Computed example of a mutant assay.
Amino acid sequence: MATLSERKSAVIAGTSIIIMALAAFFSYGFVHESLVVTGDASTTYTNITTSISLFKGEIFGWLIILISDIIVAWALYIFLKPINKSLSLLAAWLRLIYSTILGIAILSLIVVLLLATDSTGLSVIKIEQVQSFMLLFLQAFEAIWSIGLIVFGAHLLMIGYVALQSSSIPKVISILLLLASIGYIIIHLSKTFFTQYDSLIAILNLVFMLPMVAGELGFGIWLLVKGGKLPKRA
Rank of each mutant, 00 (worst) to 15 (best):
I169F: 03
F193M: 04
I159A: 11
I147H: 00
D198Q: 13
H155D: 05
L157G: 04
M212P: 10
G218D: 10
A180K: 08
I201P: 09
I203C: 01
S181H: 02
E216K: 05
Q165F: 01
M158D: 08
A154I: 13
L206F: 13
L177A: 11
G218L: 07
L156Q: 08
I147N: 04
F208G: 11
L217R: 06
H188R: 06
E216S: 08
A202L: 12
S190L: 12
Q165D: 01
I182A: 15
L176W: 10
I221G: 03
S190E: 13
I185K: 02
V213F: 13
Q165I: 03
S146I: 02
H155F: 12
Y197W: 11
G160S: 08
A180Y: 02
Y161A: 12
L156P: 01
A154Y: 07
T195G: 13
S166M: 03
L176P: 13
M212A: 11
I159R: 03
I185V: 15
L189I: 10
A180C: 08
M158W: 00
L178P: 05
G183L: 10
G160C: 09
P170C: 10
Y161E: 06
S167W: 00
S146R: 02
Y197R: 04
L176Q: 07
I173D: 00
S166V: 05
Q196Y: 01
S166C: 09
L189A: 14
A154V: 15
V213G: 12
A180R: 06
D198S: 15
Y197A: 11
A180F: 05
L149F: 09
I187H: 04
L204A: 13
S167P: 01
I203V: 15
I173E: 03
S181C: 05
Y184M: 05
W145L: 14
S174H: 07
G218M: 09
I169R: 02
F194W: 11
S190H: 12
S190P: 01
H155P: 07
S167I: 02
T192E: 05
S190T: 12
T195K: 06
I182P: 04
L164A: 10
S167D: 14
H155G: 01
I187L: 07
S166N: 11
P170M: 03
S199Q: 14
S167G: 15
L149G: 03
V207D: 08
M212L: 09
F193K: 03
L217W: 04
D198H: 05
L204D: 09
F194V: 14
S190V: 00
L189Q: 00
L178A: 14
S190Q: 13
F193T: 07
L149H: 00
L178W: 12
K191D: 14
G218Q: 09
A202W: 00
I182Q: 01
I144V: 15
L156A: 09
L204H: 07
L217V: 15
F152N: 05
Y184G: 06
V172N: 08
M212E: 13
E216W: 08
G218V: 07
Y197I: 03
Y161G: 01
G148I: 10
I221R: 02
P170S: 07
S166Y: 05
T192N: 10
A154M: 14
Y197K: 04
W145S: 12
K171H: 04
L177K: 10
M209G: 01
Y161N: 14
S181D: 01
S174I: 07
G215A: 06
P211G: 11
P170Y: 01
I175Y: 12
F208N: 09
F219V: 04
M158I: 00
A202H: 11
L156W: 09
T195Y: 06
S199V: 06
